[in-house]
C-alpha cells in the first residue's frame, strides 16, 4: 500500500511539472533570462508548491513516525557551509545552460527526449564524480 501511494506521489510530482510548464527548458530559461522577455511563471510554481507542502510538513512536525510506522527523515543540519553555497552556485550555472533541473529532466526522459537522456547520464556522472572526490555520500 505505502509503495502504491509513493508511486502516486512520484506521478503527481511529474504531472505537476508538466502542467506548470517546467518540463519545457525554454520556459525555465524564460524565467532565468531577466534581461530578455521575462516569464515569471516559475515563481508561481514555487508559491503553489510551498503553500501545499507547508501543510504537509506542519502535519508531521511533532510526529516521530510516518503513518506506516517508518521514521521521519528531515534534514537536521543548520550551518551555512561553503559546500552548500558553492554547490548551489554550480547547480544554478548548469540549470541556466540547458534549462533542465533534475525533476523536469527525468520527466522529459520519460517522454522520450534523447537530449534529456544525455543530460541525465551526465548528471549521474556528475553526482558520482562528487561522491568519489569527497566521500561524503549522505544517505539516511
Amino acid at each position: 500500500m505505502k509503495n502504491i501511494i509513493t508511486l502516486l506521489a512520484g506521478l503527481f510530482f511529474g504531472l505537476g511539472l508538466i502542467i506548470s510548464g517546467m518540463t519545457n527548458p525554454a520556459k525555465v530559461i524564460g524565467f532565468l533570462d531577466i534581461a530578455g522577455l521575462w516569464d515569471p511563471s516559475l515563481i508561481f510554481v514555487m508559491i503553489g508548491g510551498i503553500a501545499v507542502a507547508f501543510v504537509g510538513f506542519k502535519f508531521v512536525q511533532n510526529k516521530s513516525q510516518a503513518i506506516f510506522g517508518e521514521s521521519i527523515h528531515l534534514p537536521g543540519r543548520s550551518e551555512i557551509s561553503k559546500e552548500l553555497v558553492i554547490g548551489s552556485l554550480l547547480f544554478g550555472a548548469g540549470w541556466a545552460l540547458a534549462g533542465f533541473c533534475p525533476g523536469p529532466a527525468l520527466v522529459a526522459l520519460g517522454a522520450g527526449y534523447k537530449e534529456a537522456f544525455i543530460f541525465v547520464i551526465a548528471m549521474i556522472v556528475g553526482m558520482c564524480i562528487h561522491d568519489n572526490l569527497f566521500k561524503t555520500c549522505r544517505i539516511k
Binding site: K2, I5, T6, L8, A9, G10, L11, F12, F13, L15, G16, L17, I18, I19, S20, G21, M22, S41, L42, F44, V45, M46, I47, G48, G49, I50, A51, V52, A53, F54, V55, G56, F57, F59, V60, Q65, A66, I67, F68, E70, S71, I72, H73, L74
Partner: peptide
C-alpha cells in the same frame, strides 16, 4: 497553470513526507 501545477508538486511532497517520512 503554473500555480496549479506547483500545488500538485506540493501535494506530492506532502504525501511523501506524511506517508514515508
Amino acid at each position: 497553470l503554473s500555480l496549479l501545477g506547483g500545488m500538485l508538486i506540493g501535494l506530492a511532497a506532502a504525501i511523501l513526507v506524511i506517508v514515508r517520512g
